[in-house]
Design a protein around this nucleic acid. Sequence first.
RNA 1: GCCCCCAUCGUCUAGUGGACCAGGACACAGGCCUUUCAAGCCUGCGACAGGGGUUCGAAUCCCCUUGGGGGCACCA
Length: 502
Amino acid sequence: MSDRPVRVRFAPSPTGYLHIGSARSALFNWLFARRHGGQFILRIEDTDQKRLVADALDDFTAGLRWLGCQWDEGPLVGGEHGPYSQSQRLPIYRQWADWLVEQGHAYRCYCSEERLEQVRQQQTERKEQTGYDRHCRYLTPEQRASYEAAGASHVIRLAIEPLTGSTTFHDAIRGEITFEHSLLQDAVLLKSDGWPTYHLAAVVDDHLMEISHIMRSDEWLNSAPLGVLLYKAFGWEPPVWAHLPVILNPNGKGKMSKRHAVGADGKSIPVLLKEYIAGGYLPEAMSNFLANIGWSLDGSTEVFTPEQAIAAFAIADINPAPAAFPYDKLVWLNGVYIRQLEDDDLYRRLLPFVAQALGMSVESLDARPELRLAAPLIKERIKTLAEAAPMLDFFFVDGPLEIADPQTLIGEKMSAAQTVEALHESAATLAALPDFTRESVEASLRQLSDQLGLKIRQLLHTVRVAVTGAKVSPPLFETIVILGRQRTVARLAAAERAIGER
RNA sequence: GCCCCCAUCGUCUAGUGGACCAGGACACAGGCCUUUCAAGCCUGCGACAGGGGUUCGAAUCCCCUUGGGGGCACCA
């Protein structure tokens, strides 16, 4: 297609935080750049000053780095094609807009918003296609002069040419795409306040930054002909175009919106990358997951590294069909990655999540032994880092443990009296153990269950509820050892009292 | 309304005219394992939207229909 050096860009608009769908676009661009040893550029399209979100840029850079998509040029890292924020490039756009006017490819339009609205209204009434009527495109030199003399404010519009016929361009994912010129608008290139619109700014920057491939969301497909025409008007070599399929809601209905998404079960799911980060998803899982939407490594390998993806990535292999966001698969994949983590690695990642959930500082949590010891126990029981805290909170209760309903201490086919006995004997047995290890605890409790005529599951149910406060917990013997003899015995005794007072 | 794009199991996908009575994964169901819950293992369920062509041969190419998505701003 193009034998230029590969240079691609991710060009978000700081009107909101990094959307999960945008993150995928960024990832695809990054993969492509790495595949070809090219550059991945981050550019900020902040030409809509009204909708600016102050900390959006920080969110983009933090999110991209978290995902592992480090950019080669752009904010924070610089580069030879800067500045990389469009708000700092205003004179460039004005200059090129003026150039287009001089060349006759664009014109000044003095129409007021009121007139535009009026035209639109009339078109609607007559059931005509709405759009600018090109009034100012055919002004006489005298009319133009009088507007200028009056100091009328103006925009600069692209003069679609020719007005008939069509433009066909090649999309690397979809093939030939044709648009009728009669349907195209003389789009605004430069606003009356002197700021450029997306169409102008993107084309000028893409050219000046020597972008070779434009890989962006499907939503831009309809404005691609404008870009193609603009490149032609400028006489610049156009890039390779590739429009990525959009990501739909998990239920398949509508694209994942900026604000919320609807899950397969009708519940809403997060749409911002930061929400997934805060939700305890691993960056390596997210990257793997995102790469698998609209693209696949080989059709059968689900779990793979960025290096594998880089080695295999090709634009032509991208599936053009829109995809429903496979949220369940993300949850599963994250679990896979968590299980692959080394114990110590998992512990370090868990630290901030558990500390926050428990209202502790990371330092004080780190100073205690429980989490480090318990991390291996929950490794295959959590799908996200955020799920750990509610599973382990009982480890961090130093006073008496609240048992909401003492009734739950009673196991299947057990009487209250048997439960009291089980509790009493368990406490006595554990208190008397010469050493307190996983093996000794298990052996003694198994022996006790025989003595009491209980199934091991019955005894352990009662002990589990007494010690952890819940019917479901990490493996009990290890849990008891981590908790320590003193707290274990105290909880067993407390449970015995609780059920006795019933 | 107009224009553009898309169409394989519920979902993410493999498949680029014969090796496909369509493969993998998630989800779901059943079973095994088992101190709970998980994890793991096994099994099952389950799709080429419909109709016309082209061809010796079509999930793969063409057309129509239907369905889905996106776009129609001095927003990106």
